[in-house]
Nucleic acid binder design. Sequence first.
DNA 1: CCCCTGACGGGCG
DNA 2: TCGCCCGCCAGGG
Length: 111
Amino acid sequence: MPKEKYNFFDDVFEVAKLIPKGRVTTYGAIAVYLGTRISARMVGWAINAAATEKDVPAHRVVNRAGLLTGKHHFGGNIMQNLLEGENIKIENDKVRNFTELFWDPSKELNI
DNA sequence: CCCCTGACGGGCG
DNA sequence: TCGCCCGCCAGGG
């Protein structure tokens, strides 16, 4: 508990909360926003833990292809259901109009 | 210390 | 867009 080794966990956690409703982002975009020092894989690892322990809209985070890679971890079609509840169309486990719905933190937040 | 795995991404064809 | 290969970093056995 004295050691805060999960610093980047919290970083991903904050960024994920900033994702606007009805928008999606990618693991790589978050990694770049945090400084590239962490790989996109670590972002997925972190967001997984964050979503489990915190209330993070992890369903708005998909891979670069717009594929709902984490849907299996949500269980059933929970992830797809949440996205469709935000007017995001899902087709064949992929986000429809992904490029338009894509929300880049380092571009939109400009930090 | 070594090896494998993982919600990934980029390059190439 | 898809398939294949490689680099990325941390954790578990």
